[in-house]
Amino acid sequence: MLLTAFSSTSFAQKSWIRINRMGYSPESVKVAVLGSKEELSTKSFELVDILTGKTVFHSRNIQIYGAYACFREIFRLNFSDFKEKGTFFIRAGRIFSPRFKIQNDVYQGGADFLLKYIRQQRCGYNPFLKDSCHTHDGFIVDQPKLDSTHIDVTGGWHDASDYLKYVTTSANAIYQMLFAYQENSTVFSDEYDKNGDPGANGIPDILDEAKWGLDWLDKMNPGYGNMYNQVADDRDHTKFTLPALDTVSYGKGRERPVYFATGKPQGLGKYKNRTTGVSSTAAKFASAFALGSQLLKEYYPEFCTKIAGKASEAFKYAKTDLGVCQTASNRAPYFYEEDN
C-alpha cells in the first residue's frame, strides 16, 4: 500500500522546486526555481528548518518568468537575504523542495568531484571499470595517401553515452581544465595517479586528467598539417553496452575509423557535414597545447617542449584554411556545428 501511495503521488506531481543540490554559502546569491506544468499562482515562499520543523524565513521575492519548455509557469525564488547556517527545505504552498545546506564549506571538494565523471569517460584504460577498451584505434579515412592505414590514437575520452572521440569536444575540455587550474590551483587535490587509479602521485588530479587528454591530442596531430578530428562515427549508435564489450564493426576488425581533417564536407555514409575549413580544429589544438605546455612543464618538461612546438605549428596551420571543421556523421544528419 505504501508503494502504491508513493507511486500515485509521484505520477500526480505537476510542480517542482529545484535547488542547488550542493547547497549555498551564507553570503552567496541563493535562488531556487519553481516549475509547474499547470497554472499556478505563487506569491510567497518560506524556508523550514529540518531539525526543528519551524519556519525560519518568509519571502515574497519572486520573479515570474511564465511558460518555458514543458512548464506553463516558472518562478525564481530568491532567498539571498537569509544568511543563517543549517539544513532547510523550501515550501511554496503545497510544493516542497529537497533539503539543502547553507554552510561555508558546501563547495569544498566540488572541483575534484567533477573529475569523477571525466575520469570514468576514459578510453583505453578505464580506471572506473578497471578494464581496457578500444585498444585497436584506428585506421585513417579521408586521407588519400594514407587511407586505411593504421594510426595509434588510443586513449582520450568517450564523448557521451556512445564511444566516439572528438577533438572538437576533447580539446575544449582540456583547455577548460587547464584554465580552471591556472585560475584557482589551490582547490584541486592529489588523490589519484596518472592512470586515474586511487593513490597520490605528486601531481594535482586535474593536471593528470588534462595530461591524459593531451597525450591523445598529441597522437591526433602527428605532424604539421597532419590533423585528425574524430575517431569512429554514428554507426556506433546501435546499443548500450560497456566499453570493453563494444563490438561495432567498421570493416577492419577491431579498428575504428580516424577522420583526417580535410577542411571540406565529410561523411562516409548518406549524410555529410558542412565543413568549410580546418581552422576551428587547428586552433583548438593550438590553444590546448599552448596552455598545457605552460602548466605541465614542471612535471613533464620534454613533453611540454614538444607540444609547445606543436602549438605554434597548429596556429600557423589554422591560418592557411580558415573555416569550421565539423564532426562527421554517417547514418544520421547530426554533427557538432562549430559555427555558432
Score class of each variant (00 low, 15 high):
A5N: 10
S8N: 14
S15K: 05
I19M: 08
Y24L: 04
S28M: 03
K30G: 01
K30A: 04
L40N: 03
L40D: 02
S41Q: 14
V48C: 02
H58E: 15
S59L: 01
I62Q: 01
I64W: 08
I64K: 15
Y68G: 03
F79G: 04
F79P: 03
A92Q: 09
F96S: 09
Q108C: 07
G110E: 11
G110F: 08
A111N: 05
F113N: 12
F113R: 15
N126H: 10
P127K: 09
F128R: 07
V141Q: 02
L146F: 10
D152T: 03
G156T: 06
D162E: 14
Y166W: 13
A171L: 05
A173Q: 10
S185D: 03
S185C: 01
V187K: 02
F188Y: 15
D190A: 11
K194C: 05
D205F: 01
D205C: 02
A210Y: 00
P222V: 01
Q230P: 12
R235W: 09
A244P: 04
V248H: 11
S249P: 06
R256D: 09
G267N: 00
V278E: 08
S279G: 07
T281E: 12
A282D: 14
K284D: 12
S287T: 11
A290S: 15
Y300T: 02
E302R: 14
C304A: 08
Y317F: 15
A318T: 06
Q326K: 15
N330C: 15
Y334P: 01
E337K: 13
